[in-house]
């Protein structure tokens, strides 16, 4: 169209184009839309359009902040106007979890909590405290009907009367079956002042050892509160494990096979390339057994497979078998030695 731009129009001043009569402009636009415009009309519209180029650029009059406000505002409109790609969504970290929680019907939530405690609870009046001895497992029923299987050397405590929040404190290791309440009351497991997790409908594993704390999520959702629960929360996805040594906020997240972390409940321990050093930590934490290795390098030996936990003798035998060492026991002391040829 511009090809035909005739000289006669260029006679008009730019100002004349800019101030083109609105009816004339509307007429030209209608003609253009219907494809009925003559080459002259097309050129006139083109000339009007081009004449506007001499007007000042609006955005140049803005300050840097004003400019970025405008940039942001329009992008927000773009975002709001379309099915946005997932990664643009603002994660509403503090609410979405509970929203899903409400949607879960009549849920029996299984949650496995495994962990080894390192400090004793403060006893309080009106507080129920359950303890297990080394190597003992026990099934407890909570006031709301939830069930907890405690592993050895563990302590579970909770208020006799629960307020709104169902909170239990755990030192050690346990397998929880949490029942859903009609009024959607939260269930929280606390392992320390700086760490707790909220059940969002789920099965998971939490382990607090001297060497660190570990949470493994089988399915569903849990929310971990790292320190200040309002601010530092994180939601785990199925198959994920987080662990930290001291400060919860210094956690690491990774994907794992979840099954082996709760196998103890089925009275077995499942190892996969697990070093004897880690096995020794379990023996210490759960069974109160001190390990001594004749040769420290033996502790780097890795074992895979499962061993029964019903009976400590059988357990030790299984470990010895899997790692091709001999294990001798004297009270709470066990000694690992290379197997004689």
């Amino acid at each position: 169209m511009a090809v035909t731009a005739p000289e006669c129009y260029s006679i008009k001043s730019e100002e004349a184009y800019r101030r083109m009569d609105k009816d004339r402009l509307q007429y030209l636009l209608e003609q253009d839309k219907n494809g009925q415009n003559s080459p002259e009309e097309a050129a006139e519209l083109e000339a009007w359009y081009l004449s506007a180029e001499s007007r000042p650029a609006f955005t140049e009059s803005l300050s840097a902040d004003g400019l970025s406000a405008l940039e942001g505002k329009i992008f927000a409109r773009i975002e709001a106007a379309q099915p946005v790609p997932q990664e643009w969504n603002v994660p509403s970290v503090n609410r979405s979890g509970w929203f899903n929680w409400r949607g879960i019907a009549a849920a029996v939530l299984l949650l496995v909590v495994a962990g080894i405690g390192m400090y004793m609870f403060q006893r309080q009046n009106g507080r129920i405290v359950e303890r297990t001895a080394f190597g003992e497992t026990r099934v407890l029923t909570l006031p709301d009907g939830s069930e907890v299987t405690l592993n050895g050397n563990s302590v579970l405590s909770y208020d006799r009367e629960w307020p709104e929040l169902r909170e239990v404190k755990l030192e050690g290791e346990g397998y929880f079956k949490v029942v859903h309440t009609k009024d959607h009351r939260k269930f929280r497991v606390r392992t320390g002042d700086d760490f707790s997790l909220d059940v969002l409908g789920t099965q998971f594993n939490i382990s607090k050892r001297e060497s660190g704390t570990r949470i493994v999520l089988d399915e569903g959702k849990v929310r971990c509160n790292l320190g200040d629960s309002e601010r530092d929360t994180l939601v785990l996805k199925p198959g994920e494990m987080i662990r930290f040594t001291k400060k919860p906020t210094d956690y690491q997240r990774e994907r794992v096979e979840t099954g082996r972390y709760s196998a103890w409940k089925e009275h077995k321990l499942v190892f996969k390339n697990t070093s004897l050093r880690e096995v020794a930590a379990i023996l210490q934490d759960t069974y109160g057994l001190e390990t001594e290795a004749g040769n420290p390098e033996l502790l780097d030996r890795q074992i895979s497979g499962s061993v029964p936990t019903d009976n400590v003798e059988l357990l030790l035998e299984g470990i010895a078998e899997a790692s091709a060492v001999t294990i001798s026991r004297d009270g709470n002391q066990i000694v690992i030695a290379p197997r004689a040829e």
Partner: peptide, 21 residues
């Protein structure tokens, strides 16, 4: 694009709308 639209429309609302579209 915004400047181009503003030169012709002189109304920020419409310009925002156009860039968005």
């Amino acid at each position: 694009l915004f400047d181009a639209a503003y030169r012709r429309l002189l109304l920020r609302e419409e310009c925002e709308e156009i860039i968005q579209e």
